[in-house]
Each structure stands twice: as structure tokens, then as C-alpha cells.
């Protein structure tokens, strides 16, 4: 990833991550807007809020330099890894949306792990690792939902 190589400062990295979270929020907001089912609209709007929460946290870190680190192991069911990627569309089913979301969260996880690797100091490494864990948790939530409903009999 070339962008990563262009970072000149910690702020650059944080700005990049903040932008990334905003894009994630936009993504879920779009899914919410496109859906004609009320319940789906609400669910996606919630996801968008969570991503905005991440963004707010990053902004706070950038402004104050403070953060909390929690070490956690998050289960990776890898359900999304094997699935054929869906495309966004207005007629999208919740199953398709979940596949998309699992893949997106996995990509975000990988991105933060990568950022954590290249981060110039331990503080920043930990911040990104933490964010990676957050994304992994998101993904697990989607995976469990997928596991319970789509793989009802499997």
C-alpha cells in the first residue's frame, strides 16, 4: 500500500485512519439510505454510528494524545473470507449486506494491523492494534449473526 509509505508524521497516519473511518460510516449510511426495509435501514444506521464513534476516538487521540489500550483476543470465524463478494445495490438482501460488511471489516482490520506494524513508536502501534481489535469485534458480530441466521441448519 503506497499511501502508507507516504506518511510523514503521526498526524498523517491518524488523519488517514480518521478518513478511513469516515468512509466506513459513509458506506453504512449509504446502505441504510438505499434500503427500503425499515429494520435494515436502522441496523445500517447503527453500524454507521459505531464507525463514527471510532472516528471521534481517533480525533480525540490526535487532539490530546491520550488513549487507552486493552489487550484482547478476538475470535476470527473467517466466514467472510470464503464468500463471494457482493456488490451494493438497492435490492440488496441483508445476507448480501452482511457479506459485504464482513469483508469490509476484515479489510479494515488488516489495514490497522499493517499500520500498527509500520507505526514509528509503541504508543501508536498500540492505538492501531486497538483499532484493529475493534474492527475484528465488528466482524465477529456480523459473523455470529450470519452463523445464526444464514447457517441456521449448518
Amino acid at each position: 500500500m503506497n499511501i502508507i509509505m507516504d506518511f510523514k508524521s503521526i498526524d498523517d497516519i491518524l488523519d488517514f485512519a480518521i478518513k478511513n473511518e469516515q468512509q466506513a460510516a459513509d458506506f453504512y449510511n449509504k446502505l441504510s439510505g438505499d434500503s427500503s426495509v425499515k429494520e435494515m435501514k436502522n441496523t445500517f444506521a447503527e453500524y454507521a454510528k459505531e464507525e463514527e464513534g471510532h472516528k471521534a476516538r481517533l480525533i480525540k487521540i490526535k487532539d490530546t494524545g491520550e488513549y487507552n489500550v486493552k489487550e484482547e483476543e478476538v475470535l476470527d470465524l473467517k466466514i467472510g473470507d470464503y464468500l463471494v463478494s457482493a456488490k451494493t445495490s438497492e435490492q440488496m438482501t441483508y445476507q448480501e449486506a452482511l457479506i459485504l460488511a464482513m469483508k469490509r471489516e476484515k479489510a479494515a482490520y488488516k489495514l490497522y494491523m499493517r499500520l500498527s506494524e509500520i507505526a514509528p513508536n509503541n504508543n501508536l502501534k498500540n492505538i492501531f492494534k486497538n483499532l484493529a481489535i475493534e474492527e475484528a469485534k465488528h466482524k465477529l458480530k456480523f459473523e455470529i449473526e450470519y452463523d445464526d441466521i444464514i447457517y441456521h441448519e449448518n
Partner: peptide, 11 residues
């Protein structure tokens, strides 16, 4: 259709 599986009968 566009890489996604669709059912001709209902979709």
C-alpha cells in the same frame, strides 16, 4: 448477474 447469484423466478 454481475457476479451475484440471482433467482430468475423471483428476482
Amino acid at each position: 448477474v454481475g457476479g451475484q447469484t440471482k433467482f430468475v423466478c423471483v428476482d
